[in-house]
Amino acid sequence: MIAPAPISTAPAASEADWRDFYALTKPRVITLVIFTGLCGLLAAPGTIDPVLGFTAILCIAVGAGGAAALNQWWEADLDAQMKRTRQRPVPAGRMDKRAARDFGIALSGGSVLVMGLAIGWLAATILAISIFYYAWVYTVWLKPRTPQNIVIGGGAGAFPPMIGWIAVTGHITLMPVLLFLIIFAWTPPHFWALALFVQTDYDAVGIPMMPNVAGERSTRYQILVYSVALLVLTLVPWWLGLAGRVYGVAALVLGLAFVALSVKVGLRQTAEAGDTMRPEKQLFRYSIVYLFALFAMLVVDHVATLSGA
């Protein structure tokens, strides 16, 4: 009879709890990914079987979770040095790096495969591109090299509504591209508002975020520029007749509020010691509500158009 191998201290790191694996997928970010993907799917012309629709959203969520796990595997050493991230499973020592990497690869590969077999290979290809974009283009390539990391890397988070739309229609048209561009333009003001009040963390690990490379003044100005661009961009679907009045009015009202908060941040003097950064925190919180509301109104508008309102 073979005796079981004695258990030493080593497995403590490799035997992470399931909650650690769950945390590795960045569940809070995935909420937004699921929501925008679902809105893309619901606003698309045409119908999809509920089981297939659920599968498409599940694949988008699992793919995003896989990319997040790969991101945390790659950035474990950086995360260990930042207050905001040092309690993540890998830097905290609750999970070893290889487990995080393998988990990320399994989720990414599995989600693309199921998406291809159940929904279609165009949606699967875009999903694969989005995972690659986040895990490699953003995490490995852009983030440590350029303060434009968030601008270009924002593309990674902009794919879900496009994938949801393609899952229904089976092809790419102007509207899913516009949805992509809306999230693309939303990401810089959203993330730079955060970067302004957690600036010291990024500074400490040498990540070239806009505030610590171009300076706070320039970042504030750019937040304002992107917010105005976002407002204009969100009105394009209405202007081109790709979305109705309900969406158009909502985009205008929500966008004006976004610009108003951005003006407060954009025209503000550089923060001094002891500054609570209230306008920046307000803008960051509102930007999340804004995206949820804008995409929700896109679906409401679609339903209203279908019911002839």
Binding site: P6, I7, S8, T9, A10, A12, D17, W18, F21
Partner: peptide, 21 residues
């Protein structure tokens, strides 16, 4: 590496079980 203490072993088994479930 040192063998686990009984309490560490119990915690390890608990994590393993929850992961399997």
């Amino acid at each position: 590496s040192q063998p686990l203490t009984p309490s560490e072993l119990a915690a390890y088994r608990l994590r393993q079980r929850s992961r399997s479930r």
